[in-house]
Amino acid sequence: MMFEGTVFKFGRDVDTDVIIPARYLNTTEPNELAAHVMEDIDPGFVSRVKAGDIIAAEENFGSGSSREQAPVAIKAAGIACVVAVSFARIFYRNAINIGLPILVCPEAAREAESGDLLRVDLDRGKVINLTKQKEYQGDRFPGFMQEIVAAGGLMAMVKEKLAGDKSGPS
């Protein structure tokens, strides 16, 4: 998977309460959630973000609540990929499970600035900052997670397993 997009840059400890405040958690509709994504940290984000844009963030992106509505809202807003110095663990799992591409690439995430053009090669874990003309190597997913991504997400794997169980003992 390859993405090219304009960077929205955030600092460290961006928590899921600012990604999607709880006052909007009375729905699970992706588009309703996307209308308020990042509202409490960058009120203009929703009006400026375009499909294919990329979020770059520093340490501990997605900390706090387990609300899966956070990666759902980011994805529905059109964000193609999130590159960070590090991710909070529940957010990391959730993003993989719902198919929001994410990459741990500390240097690329730290050096990127809002407005930079970034190219991300998820399979090879590579990031190129086209504005700064610099290339970075990030962490590829461990094999276990690549299987989930390749299967099309966690529930696709569960579906296969359930179908297998129904066809009788193996």
Binding site: E68, N97, I98
Partner: peptide
């Protein structure tokens, strides 16, 4: 441990989690 809704859905269906 805390998980998101999809992990929970898989857990409800299979009784397992990676």
């Amino acid at each position: 441990t805390g998980v998101g809704s999809t992990d929970l859905a898989a857990g409800m269906a299979t009784g397992e989690m990676w």
